[in-house]
């Protein structure tokens, strides 16, 4: 059976699951809800009801959202032909877990404590195995090329106490791994999507580094290789104001979206708009797959859509807990 045929069944299941997405009216009702309890009640009328019933406290909504996301990953994992496709979206959680464990090692070395409570079960690699391997220093068993990277990170930290450098190495590895897996999957659209994400992440990082007054040479090490935009060209923009980035990035796929961001607003506003644009753009990139009944990128589109939905719900619930501004919330919602 060809790869395209193998994904026919998975896409059909995905189409059925897509009906469970929250529509804009539900999100709107949640935004307009008086308090957290009312918002959760509205959420209880949707596909999130099973996740909600398993969590008692209203303040526990983060656990509930994690549970929902995990259930979705498990369900999709059960019927897709190649689980590696799923890993493209789960590596961020795996690397988060690795960061928690490695920072716990640093904390213990400086008299602090381990914070395993920050670990998440959303990753593709079992958390218990990861803890065991890092705690017992059995690095050779670690996946994702971490067998060499973790000792390197520990060595860097012992010599310079430079956590930023450790995080940079781990982030670089994460994006390199995503690209490797996308390449191995032999799905050109998935590879294309990952390259777009790398470019998007590079642009986002560049804007943040510009704020921290990094020069081009230093910023270059923070750029992830494998995107479509040359990182050398990208870092040269760091000395220019954001307004002129539009002109320089006009030829790229981000050109139109970047142009829509007002360069005169404050950085806080600008980064929020950029992150929203990027999140929406990654979904738009996969939109054409909807017209195919067996395109594997439908899986990616569904999972990314779900991630954004959970993000939207989290934003609304956090705003309800803290009395956040409704208008600002509406502007930040992804894919609505």
């Amino acid at each position: 059976m060809s790869q395209q045929d193998a994904y026919g069944y998975a896409v059909a299941r995905i189409r059925a699951m897509e009906n469970r997405f929250l529509d804009a009216s539900v999100l709107q009702r949640m935004i307009d809800a008086e308090d957290l309890a009312t918002a959760l009640k509205i959420l209880g009328e949707t596909s999130y009801s099973s996740a909600l019933t398993s969590h008692v406290s209203d303040q526990d909504f983060d656990k509930m959202l994690e549970f929902e996301l995990q259930a979705i990953y498990k369900e999709v994992e059960s019927f897709i032909p190649n689980k590696k496709l799923l890993d493209l979206l789960r590596y961020q959680y795996d690397f988060h877990n690795v960061k928690v464990l490695i920072k716990s090692v640093f904390n213990v070395a400086t008299g602090g404590e381990k914070r395993w409570d920050f670990l998440t079960s959303l990753g593709s690699y079992p958390v218990d195995t990861l803890i065991n391997d890092i705690e017992l220093e059995e690095y050779k068993f670690l996946p994702f090329g971490l067998n060499n990277l973790i000792p390197e990170c520990i060595s860097i930290w012992e010599q310079s106490r430079d956590v930023l450098e450790v995080e940079r190495l781990l982030d670089n590895r994460m994006y390199a791994l995503m690209k490797e897996i996308a390449f191995d999957l032999d799905i050109p659209e998935a590879l294309n999507w990952i390259r777009t994400r790398i470019d998007g992440e590079n642009i986002r990082s560049l804007l943040r580094l510009k704020r921290f007054n990094f020069d081009a040479t230093r910023a270059l090490s923070f750029m992830h290789c494998g995107g479509k935009i040359d990182t050398g060209m990208l870092v040269s923009l760091i000395v220019e104001p954001f307004e002129s980035w539009k002109r320089s990035l006009e030829f790229t796929e981000f050109g139109k979206g970047i142009s829509s961001i007002d360069g005169t607003v404050s950085f806080s506003e600008m980064i929020l708009l950029l992150e929203k644009f990027l999140d929406d753009f990654y979904l738009d990139k996969l939109a054409s797959s909807r017209f195919s009944s067996n395109a594997p990128e439908n899986i990616l589109a569904y999972l990314w859509h779900k991630e954004m939905e959970v993000k939207n719900v989290r934003m609304i619930l956090v705003a309800k807990t803290s009395g956040g501004d409704k208008e600002q919330l509406r502007r930040l919602l992804r894919n609505v």
Partner: peptide, 23 residues
């Protein structure tokens, strides 16, 4: 409010992890 904005956009564990090693 700014911090809440950051907290709303990511897993709380991820935010805590980010601030685990304040140098």
């Amino acid at each position: 409010a700014g911090f809440l904005l950051a907290r709303a956009q990511t897993l709380p564990q991820m935010l805590e992890q980010t601030l685990m090693c304040a140098s």
